[in-house]
Design a protein around this nucleic acid. Structure first.
Lengths: 133, 133
DNA sequence: CCGCATCCTTTCGGATACTG
DNA sequence: CAGTATCCGAAAGGATGCGG
């Protein structure tokens, strides 16, 4: 009989990665996904595949450099797929993978929180700034 | 009778802020909270008030500059309270406000996602990098 | 249309030294 | 202990021009 029970193994598995630790890969991954453009790009793909130019219109004022960079990272990390349709002109569409879909609720939540609590944050800032001594 | 029904007003209210728009304040707020240190700091305060030095130990390798800056922003935005206990030496504790508590599940989710899906992302990266042509 | 390469400015963020 | 202030290198990110 093993000295490590199923509960032990579960606890160990859930602690396999710890973003609090600097050297942990999860810390870097957190840094990647905790990003404004990632949040907007992933949520923009919620309803299905979309074209590059379509995404660029939706994520207002994003530069093509940042959009391409963000999409490349998401593609490399297995969160989106990139599909090129050879036509004239070429047509490129991006779509969430199942892994990307698992991140979608989280990204939608953070974007939603910002939109939902903007007024409260504004009020807090006014109070804070008025209290300058 | 007004031409705008309650449903109209609700729809309008929920669309009052839109992070997709560059000029929208919610875009800036999203940029503030979609941050590695914010995620780690907020989740670290989940179980109650903690001291500055305690947080610094938990958020391994964070510089005092970034920790102070992050906490100041959170305080200004009304997400945490800062309490100074005059003693020798001085004791400063940080605690989530109700507004901060409303953000906690979101921040815990993003941190948790990174830790939970690290292996899948790693596998995707290996595949992507191997396919270099 | 969908990029990549380059330049250049701005910001981020670590290191260090110093205060109540 | 819990900061603030300053310096400085590294990285982010916009602008522009070119290419398949």
């Amino acid at each position: 009989m093993p000295t490590r029970t199923a509960a032990h193994r579960r606890a160990e598995a859930s602690a396999a990665y710890d973003a609090y630790l600097a050297e942990c890969p999860a810390r870097q991954l957190l840094d990647r996904i905790a990003d404004k453009w990632v949040s907007l790009a992933v949520t923009a793909l919620a309803d299905g595949p979309r074209r590059y130019s379509d995404l660029q219109r939706t994520l207002a004022s994003i530069s093509q450099k940042m959009l391409t960079q963000t999409l490349r990272h998401l593609e490399r990390d297995g969160l989106v797929t990139r599909t090129v349709t050879p036509a004239v002109p070429v047509r490129v569409t991006y779509e969430l993978t199942p892994l990307g879909r698992s991140l979608l609720p989280v990204m939608a939540a953070i974007k939603g929180w910002a939109e939902a609590h903007m007024d409260e944050v504004r009020a807090a800032r006014d109070t804070y700034d008025d209290a300058e001594d």
